[in-house]
Amino acid sequence: MAFPQTRLRRLRYNSVLRDMVTETKLSVDDLIMPLFVCAGTNVKNPISSMPGNYQLSVELLVEECKKVVAAGVRAVLLFGIPAEKDEHGLVACQHNSIVQTAIRAIKKELPNLYIVADVCNCEYTTHGHCGTIIDGDVDNDSTLVTLAKQSVSLAEAGADMIAPSDMMDGRVGSIRKALDEAHFEKIPIMSYAAKYASGFYGPFREAAESAPKFGNRATYQMNPANSNEAMREVAADIEEGADLVMVKPALSYLDVIYRVKTEFNMPVAAYNVSGEFSMVKAAGANGWIDEARVMMEILTSIKRAGADIIITYHAVDAANIINAMK
């Protein structure tokens, strides 16, 4: 019916009713907190472009995880900054590599914290690219060997989920095969299925010390102009055995999140990346926006677009707000 019989504002006048008819509700269970672990002892290096985030040595990382758990966030995503790097990223495959060491330490203190291990070589290679360089570019198939070894090593250390972020063709299948052969068939894979060559990753390069020493990542990460290609990437990862698929970044790719959820109807993660986080922090620090309100609006929009899981540096702050509203 038309106005005046239909008055949509009737559903908005009372806060109780507004809550009742809220279509999208953000939960603490939706959130994963990314953390950065580095070599050394008693190390807490501030990440200048990501206020409130740090490179943490293992024992301080464990303490940070306790704060994450205290806020009600039940999962973390780990990135490692090793003491040494090599040409192929093989250091990431070692039993005592930085993330493997961190996983064991966390599980000893917090056995129920769900640990997602990022799998990529950019933090571990001397050149900063995501795989083995041959003829000036990342060689796809030789990189698959390293990624599979790294995944098995992380599973052996106690990782609950493997999350390959390299964007090599065929990496989900190679990792799934390697995990199954090592009797880790119960370990799920969350693939960075639609990962774009984005300018929003800038602060992460500082955090993970992973900026490429030459060129860029346009030959393996996706063109930001493409949406149909993302559907092909997602379909390929699902066929190879991905249990969850991710869209990264989130805020400028809400349409892609929506398409993935609608077309594939499977669990979808979205990564609210460093640049998205840092813009909110900078604008909030300058008094240009209500930081907490904008943070929650952004996270809700990502959930509304179709994301089941949101990886975000806002996770603890958002969880505290959600908990306070209960």
Rank of each mutant, 00 (worst) to 15 (best):
I302V: 14
T126G: 10
A70D: 15
P164R: 01
Y54C: 02
D86R: 09
S252W: 00
C120H: 05
L90C: 07
G202K: 12
I298C: 13
N14R: 14
D30Y: 00
L78P: 06
L77N: 02
A242E: 03
K107R: 07
C38Y: 03
L113M: 13
T262M: 08
K85Q: 15
S252Q: 12
I103V: 12
K107F: 06
A250M: 07
E291L: 10
R176E: 03
E263N: 12
P51R: 05
R293A: 15
T143M: 09
N14A: 08
T41S: 14
A2Q: 11
R104H: 08
V62Q: 10
L8H: 10
K281G: 00
E185D: 14
V268L: 02
A324K: 12
V76I: 14
S210D: 04
P51Y: 05
R171F: 01
A283E: 04
I238K: 03
S49W: 06
A324I: 00
S274D: 02
S151F: 00
A193C: 06
I103A: 09
M50Q: 08
N320Q: 12
D160C: 00
V116L: 13
A269Y: 03
V68R: 08
L78Y: 03
K85H: 06
P4D: 09
E276P: 11
E59C: 04
V99P: 07
P51H: 03
A193L: 09
R10V: 03
V138A: 06
L154D: 04
M296G: 06
F36I: 14
A236T: 15
I289S: 09
L244I: 10
C120P: 02
K248C: 11
A318E: 09
V294H: 07
H88M: 14
V247H: 04
L35F: 06
M266V: 04
H314T: 00
I106M: 08
V280E: 01
C120Q: 07
A178L: 04
V234E: 02
M168C: 11
R7V: 14
I162L: 10
I98R: 02
V260E: 07
V260F: 03
A155W: 05
A148V: 02
D86Y: 09
Y258R: 15
T126P: 01
L154P: 02
K213E: 11
Y192K: 05
I189P: 02
R176S: 05
A318I: 05
I162G: 03
E59P: 06
M231F: 00
I298S: 15
N140A: 10
P224D: 02
A148F: 00
A178G: 01
A230R: 07
M295R: 14
V58L: 03
I187W: 01
Y13F: 13
Y313H: 08
P51F: 04
I162H: 05
Y253K: 15
F200Y: 15
M50D: 06
Y258P: 00
A70T: 01
I115N: 07
S174G: 08
I103P: 04
T6K: 14
R205P: 03
E59W: 02
F3W: 12
Q150Y: 01
H314R: 03
V245I: 12
S274V: 04
Y54D: 04
S210H: 07
K108A: 15
N265E: 15
V234P: 06
L11Q: 11
M325L: 14
E181W: 00
S274T: 07
E59D: 14
Y114G: 00
T132A: 05
H88V: 14
N42F: 08
S153G: 13
D255G: 15
K326D: 14
I309S: 01
